[in-house]
Simulated scan of single mutants.
Amino acid sequence: MPQVVAIAFKTQKRGAMLEVQTALVTRESGVGQDIYGKPGKRQVTLISRQQWQAACEQVNQELPWTVRRANIMVDGLEFNESLVGQQVRIGDLVLEITGETDPCRKMEQACVGLEAALAVGWRGGVTCRVISPGQITVQDELSII
């Protein structure tokens, strides 16, 4: 069963990602008090551990997942276009997958070649909107509903 393996958010633009073991995810502020958690199609971002590792292998670097600046890393699920419009349940939390998280030049600044490595096969993850709020914790199981 897929599960949450990491949670993070940032409280200021270009600020450090703050990793937490548990977070409240709401319609008003996304994950924790994330600066980009306002309501909309890009409220919460998810990344797959397997897809992140594939990108790291392509650039021959072992990079911390927070370099990607995503909110939630999951294990056991890979993202692709067929999941757009689907909902993800993590406990009481329900997210709607709204699209692909396009890698930006910040990825290239972090590691040469990373932007291109993340552009392959949805490795950059997905964007989501909060449908139903909930508390999440590392090791929570998730499902596509």
Rank of each mutant, 00 (worst) to 15 (best):
G134P: 11
Q12P: 03
L142N: 00
G76I: 09
E115F: 10
T66R: 12
I35S: 05
L95D: 00
G85Y: 11
T26K: 15
Q21S: 13
E115D: 11
A110S: 15
R123P: 00
C128V: 07
V88W: 00
Q86F: 03
T45L: 08
G30S: 05
L18I: 15
F79V: 09
I97P: 01
I144A: 14
F9T: 07
A119W: 08
I90H: 11
V126N: 09
E100M: 13
S132A: 09
V44G: 01
G99L: 06
R14Y: 07
W65M: 04
C111D: 07
I7E: 05
K38W: 08
R69Y: 07
T11I: 05
T137P: 06
R89T: 06
A8W: 04
V84S: 06
I144E: 15
P64Y: 11
M107P: 05
E141G: 14
T45C: 11
A116H: 12
E141Q: 15
D140T: 12
L114T: 01
V74S: 02
K13I: 07
Q3M: 11
A23T: 05
Q61L: 05
G32V: 11
Q109P: 00
Q43T: 08
L63Q: 11
V5F: 02
A119G: 12
T66H: 10
Q21R: 12
A8D: 06
W52R: 03
G113K: 03
T45K: 10
S143P: 13
N60Q: 11
V31Y: 05
I90W: 07
Q109A: 09
E115T: 15
V25S: 06
P39E: 06
C104M: 03
T137K: 13
R14L: 08
W65R: 04
S82K: 06
A23F: 02
P133Q: 07
V59N: 12
T101V: 14
F9E: 02
S82D: 01
T66N: 13
R105E: 15
G113T: 08
R68N: 04
V44W: 01
K10G: 13
R123E: 13
Q51H: 01
W52V: 08
Q139L: 14
A110M: 10
V84W: 03
V25W: 00
T101C: 14
V67I: 15
G99Y: 04
V74N: 02
R69I: 12
S29I: 06
L114Y: 06
N71L: 05
L77D: 13
Q135L: 09
R105F: 10
Q12W: 08
V138W: 08
R42W: 00
M73S: 02
V84L: 07
Q58N: 14
Q12A: 12
G15C: 02
E19I: 08
N80L: 01
E96F: 02
E57R: 04
G76S: 13
G37K: 03
G15H: 02
E108Q: 09
V126E: 14
K106L: 13
V5E: 15
S82R: 05
D92H: 10
F9G: 03
Q86H: 07
V4M: 08
G113L: 05
W65T: 04
G76A: 13
V31K: 10
M107K: 08
E57V: 01
